[in-house]
Design a protein around this nucleic acid. Structure first.
Lengths: 239, 239
DNA sequence: TAGATTGTTAATCGATTAACAATC
DNA sequence: TAGATTGTTAATCGATTAACAATC
């Protein structure tokens, strides 16, 4: 609404969801030694239109220079700060099955201010085992993790059947941000945020569009062009 | 627009994205022996408001009975059909690192009409190895998979550096639906759909909201209630 | 100054919500 | 018929887009 940084409140959800992609694009440019970028170039690297990018960035403040563009390092820093990535976020992963294993070993977490401080499992058989250099602990250490390590984010990688129970334990310990990989709806208090990643759901959405394309190819839908696409770098369906 | 099923075209993206969740909720009800459900009950199980559910379902047709509700099995079938899940979808996973391993072993794919028909990797060292009962093959078999197995969906689980190359190979072979786990933007032709799952992005969005909550708790944002929440079962941020 | 590009405006589009007439 | 619940309407809200004035 205003260029005054103190007046920026309520960044739209849709904008927040795109900031990480902008940040990644900027990091890539910086690695290639590029120090300045226009909204057109950055938008192209992030797979969006330039108007959308400028609108998004306008919610953070006025960090560009008219006629010139954006300074890569400065904009990257501002986005990092807005996302809260200038601080360190301790993360716990619960559920050490195949997915939990993969998440524990995933280096992408560490790259952006996230630090896996604990791996937990309800299965006593896994306790003490070491995964990606971290010892698997029981759920009972949650209170301690919150109090002593400042744990604020929990990642649920358990089967659906135990996800709600694990979620309840996280909430009881004071964790208010949860990333849920279990294919189920979690019931939480209002002040707890849940984001869900569901592999099967993503495939089902793809299948819907794939089916449409197959039907269109067969001509079953007549001569109507099914999706009059606009030119865009990365055609992302849905969302 | 109309209850005539032949007139239903262009189901909104937001609706399509929720259909898998409705389907899952219905499956759960069916397993518990429940044969009939109201929009209020089903919405609650799926974590949305009943008005939204009814609006969503109205795009598929008129499958409820006023004063009574929906027949669980029938509605589940209609949603399955709409999503294209009454047919079998062959899927190939490319990139057999930690994540690829986990995806190959993930049983959630098989439950809903998806069948992993191939595991591929560019690394010759992995070829011939067996993962989750499937032999790892080279990228060169792609053409054959499309021609003989009807492969239509590819899952990219490679590092970001090779994702575009793998994507190009998939597109060249005729795959038009891609689920991308690599943290990068893929450039594809207009008729190819890409959905992206990015673990790090999800955490960054959580961090943004977590930071806001921490600031609010400190009182740094004054006495203003930060997010006047509406009562909803599952509080999901963003999207 | 002339050229370039931002930040903002205003129009458009799509999604959500509450309310209720239709109807079982 | 009375009670319940759907499917639809209309209002509201939020996101996208194109165009351009501001300004480096």
């Amino acid at each position: 609404m205003s260029a005054d940084p103190s007046a920026r409140r309520g960044i739209p959800d849709a904008t927040v969801a795109r900031l990480p992609e902008y940040l990644r694009a900027l990091t890539g440019l910086a690695e290639r030694g590029i120090t300045s970028v226009s909204s057109e170039e950055l938008a192209s690297a992030a797979g969006v239109r330039s108007a959308k990018l400028r609108k998004d960035l306008s919610h953070l403040g006025s960090y560009g220079v008219r006629g010139v563009g954006y300074e890569v390092d400065h904009l990257a820093y501002q986005i990092s700060r807005e996302l809260g990535l200038t601080q360190d976020w301790p993360v716990a992963i619960i559920g050490m099955g195949n997915l939990g294993h993969a998440l524990a070993a995933y280096s992408g977490f560490a790259t952006r201010g996230f630090r896996v401080v604990a791996l937990l499992d309800q299965d006593a058989g896994l306790l003490g085992q070491e995964i990606a250099g971290i010892t698997v602990q029981p759920m009972t250490v949650l209170d301690e993790l919150v109090a002593e390590q400042g744990l604020a984010i929990g990642v649920i990688a358990t089967p659906a059947a135990s996800a709600q129970e694990v979620c309840d334990a996280l909430v009881a310990a004071g964790v208010r941000s949860i990333l849920n990989f279990a294919p189920c709806v979690l019931v939480v208090p209002d002040d707890v945020d849940v984001r869900k990643v569901d592999l099967s759901t993503e495939l089902q959405i793809l299948a819907f569009h794939e089916q449409r394309k197959a039907l269109a190819a067969e001509g079953a839908l007549g001569a109507v062009a099914l999706e009059p696409v606009k030119p865009e770098l990365n055609r992302v369906v849905g969302r």
